[in-house]
Amino acid sequence: MKYPLKLHVNQRTYNLEVYPSQNLRDVLREELGLTGTKEGCSTGNCGACTVIMNGMSVKSCLILALQADGKEILTVEGLSTNGQLHPLQESFIDKQAVQCGYCTPGMLMSAKALLDQNPNPTEEEVRDGLHGNICRCTGYVKIVEAVLDAAEKIGQ
């Protein structure tokens, strides 16, 4: 049996009906077509499905969709506003922090949550803050550089 669900995603409200077993990731991807949020493992380890829920970064594969009822969700599609890239997105481009790109949305969302809480992180704090997101391409080096660069830009 399906249950009603009210989701606020990227400042838009959706009234849905979902099964209790559906997780937030699948609802975002399959019901709302927001496929920027990626599927990589379904066990909460890879971080490709990271979104921000009420200000906290969460692995959306570990959140039942009904747990997100009434919550504010931000996905990578909502990161840029009025066609203007978020400083993190700009820095990921400028610092060449993107390779295959499959981890990138989740990485951006974790980085945003990190900078929201700690606007001036050290290199060590960024490495620590991103350790829930696996990237198999980059060795994280340019990703960490990009997050530090974005922090500087946001601070200015």
Binding site: G36, T75, V76, E77, S80, Q89, F92, I93, V98, T104
Partner: peptide
């Protein structure tokens, strides 16, 4: 800068 970066950072 990478040809594909903009598409990838915007999801």
């Amino acid at each position: 800068k990478r040809y594909d970066a903009l598409e990838k950072v915007t999801g």
